[in-house]
Structures are given as structure tokens and as C-alpha cells.
Design a protein around this nucleic acid. Structure first.
Lengths: 140, 140
DNA sequence: TTCCGCAAAGATAATAATTCTTATTTAGTA
DNA sequence: TACTAAATAAGAATTATTATCTTTGCGGAA
């Protein structure tokens, strides 16, 4: 399951350490775009000795090495996402819940739009939609 | 110039104070989506006695009263925007520069798309594009 | 004008998230 | 197995932000 992760680390010249694997697994399992704190809490159960600084450093380096993505919200706490495919986010400001939203048809529509309508003075590398609203079924 | 601002404050039952006016003007003039710190620095010149807490408090209440918007980037510092119309952001991760991007045609396209393709279990209230890339002419 | 009430501002302490520093440990390798 | 650079642990330090408490200043009633 973490084979992909291990390979990608090595590919990047990063050592495969238990802490890195644990942090990555935590993000995958805590699948509501956890904060650093959520990760620490989750990991402490099986890795009681992991250091807070390590979690932050590992998260940073995983983002830098494109194994995780940062997710921004209205709030000032950073959150993380292990889903790397080009996707958007549904965000509920009230409950702070974030859900991934994948929509190939929409991506195509937007890409085509920007091919026809270039933004002057700007080279686009990535387009993300932040869709704010409210989930209908408020099951946690 | 700040007539709109003064009226909106009164409309909301908020007092028109020199600090509020100064902070609002600072955001408008520092038009690269300044941080609270940028605002403080800028204001200190003409209002040397303004308190840091006041700036944060005023920024918060202006956001709450829809006179400013919060903008979040990859960095964890909050930034502010006085442009209230429905617009998107061009963001350069390298230089941290943010520019407003208004595009009515694009808004229409996206709105129409979501009318035809409802997201199940989610009521959309707002859609924002975060367009990441690089500015071509690197004039500051 | 003076006094009262209250919203706002000032000063500064407190908190929360994150970063930094240094010593120690570990993974990958020869 | 031993070596070395990279990674981790521990905790201090920093940074952005929020909270608390006091003081100020303005509008309206006496």
C-alpha cells in the first residue's frame, strides 16, 4: 500500500523512515484533509515518541517533493491532502469540512477556455476551484 | 473616495473612526493584497499610535461586515483584499504576488456548468478560482 | 455644560501554530 | 559491521493572532 510512497521517496533521494511512512499513512487514513495537529494526535497512538517538529518538517518536505498537497481554507491553519490528481475542493465554512471534488468534464471545459482566452502576462501552471457552500446531509 | 466605506459602516451600525478609515485606505492603496503586518507598517507613518490589536480587530470586523475579504495563499499568513466583486486570483508561488482576475465570461461559463451539473449533497454559495503560475513581466 | 453609557482603541499578556537549534540516532551504503 | 550524511527528538524561540483589561472619546439626556 505504501509501495508507491516508498518508491517516490527513493526516487527523490529521501530516506524511507518509519516517521515518514507513519505521517503519510496518517494523512491517507484521516481522509478529511487533516491539520498537522490531527496527524500528530493520530500518530502518537502508535508512535508515542514522534516529535512535533519532525511532523512539521516531514509534512513540508513531502509537499515540496510532491507527495502531499497543502490545502488552504478561510482559517489560518494549514491542512494536507494525499490525493495528488488534479481535483477541486468543496468547502463548508460552517463545519470546516473539506471534500474532494473530481470532475473531468469541468477540467476540460476550463482548460479549453484558457486555451482560447489566454491571460496576458501570466503563465498558468495550475487551476483549482474552491467551491464554498454547505453539505446537505450533515453526517459528520 | 471613502464615501462608500463610511456609508457602509454606518449602514452596519459601526462607527466611522479614523483608525477604520486608515486601515481601509491602507488595504486599498497597498494593492497587492497586504498582510496585517503590511497594513500596520503602512499606517504607522501617519498614525504612529495605532495599536496592533486594533488593526487585527478592525480587519476582522471589516471582513465580517463584508467590506474586505480574506485571502489565503500557500503561506500561512492571512492577506486582505478590498475588491469585493466576484473575482479570482492569479497567484505566483515564487514571488508570493497575488493579482485580481476578473472575467465575467468565465464566471458565466462556470455558473452555467453548475446549473446543468449539480453537485449532489452540496449547495454552492461561491466559486473561486485559484490560478497558480508565473507572471511574465517581473516588474514588482 | 456636565454626566452617563457604550463602542472603540490602546497596551500588553496569552495562546497557538510553526520554525529553529543542537545533540543524538538511524537508514542506506561501502 | 562500520561509516556518514540525513533524519529525528527535545524543547526553546519566533511569529501571527487573539484575548483581556483599562482608558478614551463621542452622542444623547439631564
Amino acid at each position: 500500500m505504501t509501495t508507491f510512497f516508498r518508491e517516490k521517496l527513493q526516487e527523490r533521494g529521501l530516506k524511507v523512515t518509519p516517521q515518514r511512512v507513519a505521517i503519510y499513512e496518517a494523512i491517507v487514513k484521516l481522509n478529511n484533509h487533516p491539520t498537522a495537529e490531527n496527524v500528530i494526535e493520530y500518530i502518537k497512538v502508535n508512535h508515542p515518541n514522534i516529535s512535533v517538529g519532525t511532523v512539521y518538517k516531514v509534512l513540508d518536505s513531502l509537499v515540496e517533493n510532491e507527495l502531499l498537497k497543502k490545502v488552504k481554507t478561510e482559517k489560518d491553519i494549514m491542512r494536507y491532502d494525499a490525493v495528488l490528481s488534479n481535483h477541486h475542493h468543496l468547502y463548508c465554512a460552517e463545519t470546516d469540512r473539506i471534500e474532494d471534488y473530481e470532475d473531468e468534464k469541468l477540467n476540460k471545459l476550463i482548460n479549453e477556455y484558457f486555451i482560447k482566452n489566454k491571460i496576458k502576462n501570466f503563465n498558468v501552471t495550475d487551476i483549482k476551484l474552491q467551491i464554498t457552500g454547505k453539505f446537505k446531509n450533515n453526517k459528520k
